[in-house]
Every structure is written in C-alpha cells, then in structure tokens.
Design a protein around this nucleic acid. Structure first.
Length: 270
DNA sequence: CTGATTTGACCGCA
DNA sequence: TGCGGTCAAATCAG
C-alpha cells in the first residue's frame, strides 16, 4: 500500500479509524458485557461507516486497475465474452498472478462468492479461505483467497484470481434488476461494491442474493442484516444522526479531493 | 427439501 | 516430500 495518492491516504486513515472503533467497541463490551448498550451500537456504526468508505475507495481503485488490465489485455474482455470452453480442472500455480488487496472487511464486495475450501497455512495464525464465484456453473472462473493478516487481525489480505465472466449473465435482465434494486446499488463496472450485494437481494438469475460468504467470514464485514438496518433506519435516533454525520463526511471527501472516479462514493446517500 | 458451508482427502507443483 | 489449492461427501441451515 502506497500513500502517494489522496485516496490511499484516506484509505489508510479510515483503516486506522476503523481499528480504533473496533478497540473502542471492545472496551465498551468489557465495561458492560451484559447487554448491547447504545454506546456499543455507536461504536459498531463507526466501524461500519469506516468500512463503507474503505470499501468504496477499494472498489474505485479496483475499477481503475481493471481498466488498466483491459488495456494491457484487450483480447480478454471478461464482461462481454462468452464463458471459456470447459477444460480440464486447472489448478492455480503457487504464487500465480493475482490482484492483491488489503482490506478491513471481507464479507461483501458486490460479487457472490461461495466458499470451497479452508486451509491452515504455514506461518499464518489464521486459516486461509478459498472462495469461487457462485456463478461458476455459468463458466465464471473468478476465485478469491482471503487471508487474515498477522499484523492486523482486523485486516484481510484478499487475492483475486481470474475475472468474472458471469457479470453479463446477471446484468442482462439488468433492467429488471435495476427496477427492483435500491438506489444505493452501484455498478462499478469491473469493480465490486460492498453494499450492492446487501441491498439488491433480488438477483433475477439467483432468485435473490444470498450473500453466502457473509456468514463464514469474520465479523468485521458487514452482515446483510446490518446493511438492511442501515438503509431502512428512518427514525431520527442517535444512530441515524451519527450516520447522517457520516454521510456528511463523504460529501467532504468529495469536495476536498478529486479521486478521479471516486464520485461514486456519493451513492451512499439515498 | 434444497442450497450453502465445512472439512478431510486428494492432487500437483516446487 | 511438504505445502498450497481444490474436490466432494457430510453436515448444517433456511
């Protein structure tokens, strides 16, 4: 992670903020372990708010990366090309090229991942989790590997392999999907977006987003029910007020920095 | 009952 | 030969 761009700086700061919020939550839980206090909820909301910004930055970064990738290999237009012919089950070479990311959440990135394996890795305290795209039956060979980092338990090293050839499949009916999807659904093109999977649970091809990966991944991610709560909260309770402030943040971010493509952050606001 | 997850076994590469 | 990646049967959950 380099800090040579405003987005990288913000990402770094937001990650730190999220870790602080996590620590705060731990302290609050230790203080009153009985029932979830409003303070604990507040800490959790801070966590989620930071996570959303982080995910937005990450997704925007991936969008740019994907664009560069396509320039370099225009022949492999993943989104529009038909699924590759089924060959022998290819085993990824060790250390194969991947898109690496370090993020504070793993549960949602806009794609539906299905866990197919878990492995204890030498030198790692936490097991490595293996996911593949839920649309593998449509020929999508995208996989991802999630490894909780040793240094920062709240951070995850995610490696993406392959590309999503399934996107066309669930975007074709896109009109229908857009019709039922909440306005927060963001199409980042080749990138992914955290809340999209949570808020648009009516995929035409799947009969609804099941977000299968959410349950098995660490609690740092945003659970579907939490995201639902996020969007549906209408009463002006303290949490909502905090969220409003959080949304204000994003406006500030937009006004202050030109993230070149990060304007999608504004779609948090509904 | 169906679909998703878990987990031990297997395979291939270094 | 050990390790990392994948498979697939068993199990779980909705």
């Amino acid at each position: 992670m380099t800090l040579d761009t405003p987005a990288a700086v913000v990402l770094e700061l937001m990650t730190m903020g999220q870790q602080s919020a996590s620590h705060l939550g731990d302290l609050l839980r230790a203080a009153s372990p009985a029932a979830a206090s409003p303070h604990q909820e507040l800490a959790a909301e801070i966590l989620r708010c930071c996570g959303r910004v982080i995910d937005a930055l990450r997704a925007a970064g991936r969008k740019r990366k994907a664009a560069e990738y396509q320039d370099a290999a225009a022949a492999r237009c993943a989104w529009s090309s038909p699924p590759p012919p089924p060959g022998p089950p290819a085993k990824r070479a060790r250390g194969a090229e991947a898109t690496m990311e370090v993020t504070s959440g793993t549960a949602v990135d806009g794609f539906i991942w299905r866990k197919y394996g878990q492995k204890d890795i030498n030198g790692h305290k936490h097991p490595r989790l293996y996911y593949r795209c839920a649309h593998k039956d449509q020929g999508c060979n995208a996989t991802r590997r999630v490894q909780q980092t040793r240094e920062q338990p709240a951070a995850y090293e995610i490696a993406y392999y392959g590309e999503h050839t399934c996107r066309g499949a669930w975007q074709q009916g896109g009109a229908a999907a857009a019709a039922v999807a909440p306005p927060a659904v963001v199409d980042f093109g080749s990138s992914s977006w955290g809340s999209a999977a949570d808020t648009s649970r009516s995929s035409p091809s799947q009969g609804g987003w099941s977000s299968p990966s959410a349950s098995s991944e660490a609690g740092v991610g945003f659970g579907p029910q939490l995201a639902h709560e996020w969007h549906d909260t209408a009463a002006p309770d303290p949490v909502t007020e905090f969220l409003d402030g959080c949304f204000g943040w994003e406006s500030v971010l937009q006004d202050r920095f030109d993230f070149g493509g990060l304007s999608d952050v504004a779609t948090f606001q509904q």
